[in-house]
Amino acid sequence: MQQERTVSPADPSPMVVVEHLVKRFGSFNALSDVNLEVAKGEKIVLCGPSGSGKSTLIRCINHIEKHDSGRIVVDGIELTDRICDINNVRSEVGMVFQSFNLFPHLSVLENCMLAPMKVRGLAESEAHQRSMALLRKVRIHDQANKYPAQLSGGQQQRVAIARALCMQPKIMLFDEPTSALDPEMVKEVLETIVELAQDGMTMVCVTHEMGFAREVADRVVFMDRGSIVEEGDPSRFFRAPNTERAKAFLNQIIH
């Protein structure tokens, strides 16, 4: 298995460690013995057929799903049942959902300001400043006072990215951020994520956008039926996958 890592030599401790992770829904094993390390600054693209456990894996990393066994350590904090561990981890992990999940009753700006004020204890002026800066970064600052429903899907997703960034997370998780978008809006969202990657953000992104994966991913991780089946350099993986299951999957998404 090929492994090209961009680990900065100054700080070799990984951002995320997942060891022997098991997650069951009833008697069904959504994740069986998953092991994954994400280095600081590393960009991972997670792909695999629908139902293979991609969402479940990244949702376990910020404890939206509670794992049944195994270990998850995020930036040195182990995820246990203790509420303070969970909140410490969650405040360092940003997440972007397929369906945006913006707060519909709050303006774009208020969406961004809420968590920094309530969780980080920022003063309103500080939160305002930070939110505007990040809305500018995702090029949506001129819509700051609109409500989510007044924006296009692509704009909403960029707001969701800015909202997550306002917590100054150490890692960003993306769960199919462009799957719910009309084709003409996919590009603007992917560009935003690419820029974020270029800034050095550590990220795990579930996506089937191969062009995007080639451009930013240090590593592609392929999952099937709750396990990691193959991982490697994106150009190699998309050109010549090692496993039959990955081959079958790639054939499907190309055709």
Binding site: H63, R90, M95, F97, N101, L114, V119
Partner: peptide, 11 residues
């Protein structure tokens, strides 16, 4: 999704 977004933001 509203609850999940809140969880993800550590609210």
């Amino acid at each position: 999704g509203q609850f999940e977004a809140c969880q993800a933001l550590a609210l």
